[in-house]
């Protein structure tokens, strides 16, 4: 199953990926990271199709897509 891994030190919690995901798999964490932002996370299992659109729109190169 494809998945995304979010680099919490890079994510600035802008949420753009949540909108780009065609399957709405991504949500924001409710605890903030060391940098003070609420980072994105893959919220649902068996949801990601590895399309990479989230990574396309991520301004901070924080999303790694694994297939």
């Amino acid at each position: 199953m494809p998945e995304i891994r979010v680099d919490e030190t890079r994510c600035k919690g802008c949420e753009l990926c949540t909108k780009a995901c065609p399957k709405s798999c991504i949500e924001m964490s409710d605890t903030f990271s060391v940098t003070g932002y609420y980072p994105a996370k893959l919220a649902k299992t068996d949801c990601c199709i590895g399309c990479g659109l989230c990574a396309q729109i991520c301004p901070d190169l924080a999303i790694a897509v694994w297939k």
Binding site: K12, G13, C14, E15, L16, Y37, Q56, I57, C58, P59, D60, L61
Partner: peptide, 10 residues
């Protein structure tokens, strides 16, 4: 250094 949601990074 860009702000959250800024397009420059893209």
């Amino acid at each position: 250094h860009y702000c959250p949601g800024c397009g420059h990074g893209i």
